[in-house]
């Protein structure tokens, strides 16, 4: 039982790390520009597809992964230039309309280019094995590598945000955009940078997850909504909050699906427990989010700002 718990805990952490990679860029876009971007999940999907395409062309995992970064960065920059830049000063509703349209456009483009069938990406041989976990259980190296990579990204993000000039402007921008702008910082260029970097991180997440999950046109949708949950639980604009909330959501979701029915079985008869478990497990993260917002309306690490 303990081994199973450990295994699921690692799976949850790995899922949480992925959520964090997607959420990190989005929470800054949300926080600094007060901008609702529904198209962020699509960038995650684009990352997966670019990875699959590069793997098909080169056959080399590391080369493909290295190519994904500039390409998703470019996609982010193009989108920012063509669409997002014109929407900063508009209402949330116009932003929803435009980015919802972008979701449709980009998902359909992906369908036209690569078809609707899921694509798979081969795992690099170095990371294909598994290592012994407690007892007879083994854990795939690749998933551990994903966790390690995510932690490294989180650490470097923390460094950029807490220790550099750009990071200082970001923190200031999240707190009071107008003031930063009045003090002479080019807030629009800053946002372009944040947006492109966020797109790159989301694309990177899509690329590294592609050997574990398959790449399909619907992959962006599911992660988008969970990313919103992460951002709101963590507090809009807070990367630290996003990190904690992503791990929390990843672990709660994974453990809930596994252990929810087991715990319920101690309280009611097995058939009812199975049904109730199936019903409650996917709702858990949303219940968590509603509960967090009930007690802390601005999220765990968010500042209560009057908007």
């Amino acid at each position: 039982m303990f081994n199973l718990f450990l295994l699921q805990l690692l799976n949850g952490a790995q899922f949480g790390i992925l959520l964090f990679l997607v959420a990190a860029g989005l929470t800054l876009v949300f926080g600094i520009m007060d901008f609702i971007n529904l198209a962020h999940g699509v960038l995650y999907m684009v990352g997966g597809y670019v990875m699959a395409m590069m793997m098909g062309m080169t056959g080399n995992f590391w080369l493909s992964l290295a190519m994904v970064l500039p390409m998703t960065l470019a996609v982010g920059l193009v989108l920012e230039l063509l669409v997002f830049r014109r929407l900063y000063d508009r209402s949330h509703l116009d932003q929803v309309l435009a980015t919802f349209g972008l979701v449709l456009v980009l998902s359909e483009l992906v369908r036209i280019l690569w078809g609707s069938a899921p694509l798979s990406v081969a795992m690099p041989e170095v990371l294909a094995g598994s290592v012994p976990l407690a007892g007879p259980m083994r854990y795939p190296v690749y998933r551990l590598a994903v966790i390690g990579t995510g932690l490294a990204v989180a650490l470097s993000l923390w460094f950029v945000i807490a220790r550099t000039r750009v990071g200082m402007l970001l923190r200031a921008g999240a707190a009071n955009r107008a003031m930063v702008s009045a003090l002479g910082a080019d807030i629009n260029r800053l946002f372009m940078l944040v947006f492109a970097a966020g797109a790159m991180l989301a694309g990177f997440a899509g690329a590294i997850v592609s050997p574990i999950l398959s790449v399909d046109p619907g992959m962006g949708d599911g992660i988008l909504i969970l990313t919103f949950v992460v951002i709101v639980i963590g507090g809009v604009g807070s990367v630290k909050g996003a990190f904690c909330a992503a791990l929390l959501v990843g672990i709660v979701d994974t453990l809930g699906r596994m252990f929810g029915p087991i715990i319920l079985r101690t309280m009611m008869d097995p058939a009812a427990a199975a049904q109730a478990g199936r019903t409650i497990a996917p709702m858990l993260v949303y219940i968590l989010m509603a509960a967090v917002l009930f007690w802390r309306p601005a999220g765990l690490f968010g500042r209560a700002v009057a908007r």
Binding site: H92, F228, I231, V232, M289, L293, F294, P297, A298
Partner: peptide, 13 residues
């Protein structure tokens, strides 16, 4: 209880 973006997100939840 919430405002702005948070209201959008909690109704989504």
């Amino acid at each position: 209880r919430t405002r702005g973006v948070y209201f959008i997100m909690i109704t989504l939840a």
